[in-house]
Amino acid sequence: MSHSTAIHVRGLTKRFADRTVVNAVDLTVNRGEIYGFLGPNGSGKTTFIRMLCGLLTPDSGSGTCLGHDLVREAAAIKRKVGYMTQRFSLWDDLSVRENLDFVGRMYGLSDRRAAVQTCLNTYGLADRADQLAGTLSGGWKQRLALASCLLHRPDLLLLDEPTAGVDPSARREFWEELHRLSATGVTLLVSTHYMDEAERCHRLAYLAYGDLIAHGDARDIIAQAGITTWTVRGADAAARAEFAATPGVTDLASFGTVLHVTGRDAALLATHVPKTAARLNLEATPIEASLEDAFIHLMQRATRPAQS
């Protein structure tokens, strides 16, 4: 385990009753990296993150987080990790300052008052310091949640769908902040459903129903999906049905008036897609598959485990 590794796990598994939620996942995240964590709802992302910060005990597998053993050194990990939960989980009936102050106490910060004040200033929360957290809007709640998990200057941030329900401009700002943090050497593991956010990550992992089915940078993910995509302009619902019935086509996705036709067998697509298009008086063009095409394909394949 070199010093450049923040997270290193092998065969991490978690079962709830007889359901395997995380199935033998191997993952390595380098220090200072922004690592995106994708996958449909219920695919085990939250469970995986909870195991990393000692909230859940893995049933099998092993690994280290910031050089500490996941199972035996959970206490040491907790001191160095910031965890932002999926749901806002600070205290609604405490003010912004009281929340930060309380969290600071839990981490035993030596100069708590100053740290809280700095944090309030940095995140623009100073004006709202005495407002009850429960009365903040979604964007401000998220900002407070981020501030509270950065208060103790963690080396690793675990963010579980941090931008759910936040408007686009606040999301944009949030990601700018994540990149600033990454530049200072903080490692970030971010789970998300948004494609634009996935594209902002250095590397990605795709988790589906407990299995890690693809990982690497965007290019690697597309390669691992092994897909070819054609675009068809101006296809209507009837045309869509025609393409769905075309041999070799596995997924269809509409982007406004543009239809993406995707399949795994490049040769089969190349023979049949232009034919269908010609029959409908439409034009089909081969394109380089995007990350989104890859994810749509991965997700569809994952829901049909028999074919994967």
């Binding site: 965890y83 989980s89 600070l90 981490y107």
Partner: peptide, 14 residues
């Protein structure tokens, strides 16, 4: 119920 227990458990508090 409010999910704040998760936040508490994530801190070093025993």
């Amino acid at each position: 119920e409010r999910g704040t227990f998760e936040q508490l458990l994530a801190t070093p508090a025993t």
